[in-house]
């Protein structure tokens, strides 16, 4: 597994034509889906280069999502820690209450452009499900959201919201009945309904071009942070910190800073009961590369290559000890620990 060698520290070239971010990414899907994946790739290439598409997306982000979201100076938090000036990017103020809608808005416009008439999505806690249900309601498309039965129980208010928006929530009981199984079930739906269905993936995962699309649609976060920091401070930030689950908000805020040597990027994974236990959700710090859901990435897996469940607690604790920027390939290739180790 030798990474190709683009110009050092230039991450704008990724992914390559095969959908690779160095060793990672790719298109590991059943043959039935492959023609569709190529079709999606071609449609996305065309949309990405089409000023009309970008203008339409920009209009909806402004008038429907409510962008730009504020960059808020957290005065008391700054004083509490007594170090860096801390700003918070207020993605929770978007319509539907999270960053997820940035990506959903981009993808639903693409799905419409492709003439798809039915949308499916997976969701874990429910934020992507709610955002998907919302954009489907906005454009009048039927929406099926796959959600692990365990998560349906844990996150009832979000299930209620999705139903209210007209989406059908399918409780997935296969496997461990959580997010990874919801994604398996969505893929099974897609492979069965290839001709009319668009699969709206919510995180920086899945087969190419999904990680690239999610990155591009979420990069609006980082672009705004860049402009807002320049406006507020007259300079770029010293560091950007983001939580990493699937990675969509992290790559969204990091990507516009990837080539800025002076900006340190910290991805923080949920350490659960600790990195010395197997009850955590830190796939990058505590996992190994492998293939799941269409891409090569860091996975929590056992010694035989079986996927293990991410441990989730209701109030995730951040791992202060392991807050290194190690973003694997969803964001950029290779091991970032050297550049960012303190």
């Amino acid at each position: 597994m030798n990474a190709p060698t683009p110009a050092p520290n230039d991450y704008s070239a990724y992914p390559d034509a095969q959908g690779r971010f160095g060793d990672y990414g790719g298109r590991y899907v059943p043959e039935t889906l492959m023609p569709l994946v190529h079709e999606l790739d071609a449609a996305y290439r065309a949309a990405k280069a089409d000023p009309a598409f970008q203008a339409e997306l920009s209009g909806f982000l402004t008038h429907y999502v409510g962008r730009p979201s504020p960059l808020y100076f957290a005065e008391r938090l700054t004083r509490h820690y007594g170090g860096a000036k801390i700003y918070l990017k207020r993605e929770e103020l978007n319509h539907t209450g999270s960053h997820k809608i940035n990506n959903c808005m981009g993808q639903i416009l693409l799905a419409r452009r492709m003439g798809k008439t039915r949308i499916i999505a997976e969701t874990g806690a429910g934020q992507h499900g709610v955002a998907s249900a919302t954009v489907c309601a906005r454009f009048g498309l039927p929406c099926v959201v796959y959600m692990g039965a365990v998560d349906v129980e844990r996150q009832k208010p979000n299930v209620f919201r999705m139903n209210l928006l007209g989406a059908r929530v399918e409780a997935v009981t296969s496997g461990s009945a959580t997010l990874k199984d919801a994604m398996n079930e969505a893929l099974r739906d897609w492979v069965t309904n290839v001709h009319d269905t668009y699969y709206m993936i919510g995180t920086a995962a899945g087969m190419h071009p999904y990680p690239e699309m999610v990155r591009d649609f979420q990069s609006v976060i980082g672009k705004e942070v860049r402009e807002q920091t320049l406006a507020a401070e007259g300079r770029l930030p010293d560091a950007v910190v983001a939580c990493v689950g699937g990675g969509s908000n992290a790559i969204g805020i990091f990507h516009p800073f990837l080539n800025d040597e002076g900006v340190r990027l910290y991805g923080v994974e949920a350490a659960g009961e600790g990195m010395d236990t197997d009850r955590h959700a830190a796939a990058i710090n505590g996992g190994r590369p492998g293939v799941l859901h269409g891409n090569m990435t860091y996975l929590l897996q056992d010694p035989e290559g079986q996927i293990t469940e991410a441990h989730s607690i209701s109030r995730p604790r951040l791992s202060r000890h392991r807050a290194r920027a190690f973003l694997a390939a969803r964001c950029r290739p290779g091991d970032l620990s050297d550049r960012h180790r303190r």
Binding site: P30, S174, G175, N184, L187, R188, Q306, I307, T308
Partner: peptide, 14 residues
Amino acid sequence: FPFSDPMAEGPPIQ
């Protein structure tokens, strides 16, 4: 050979 996340299998083989 069994895999925990067989995305192209229906319920019997899962």
